[in-house]
């Protein structure tokens, strides 16, 4: 079976996100007075061949922990769905 994972990787809340801060400031300049606290991360999609969803999830976790995210500076979450043949 083939699964698609959609992974969001975000800088940890405790860390300054200079990109997000710069965009937050520009929001004010554009006139979006009610928009604040922009934070910018990464969105990654990938496909996995696995016998069952649980196994596919294990692999996504493993990939996130090994390379896709660095736990010292980032957190991640994801959704996973089966691709219809």
């Amino acid at each position: 079976m083939k699964f698609i994972a959609e992974i969001n990787i975000m800088p940890l809340k405790a860390l300054l996100d200079p990109q997000g801060k710069a965009v937050t400031n520009s929001m004010k300049n554009i006139g979006f007075e009610n928009i604040s606290n922009v934070r910018i991360g990464k969105h990654i999609t990938l496909e996995i061949d696995a016998d069952e969803e649980e196994r596919a999830m294990e692999q996504v976790n493993d990939a996130c922990n090994k390379i896709l995210a660095n736990p010292i500076m980032e957190g991640y979450d994801y959704t996973i769905r089966k691709v219809e043949d």
Binding site: P11, P18, Q19, I72
Partner: peptide
């Protein structure tokens, strides 16, 4: 070396981008 876990910590984007 930080990514490899041979050194502690991590290096982030410069504060001024």
């Amino acid at each position: 070396l930080c990514e490899a876990g041979l050194l502690p910590g991590a290096l982030l984007h410069n504060q001024n981008q």
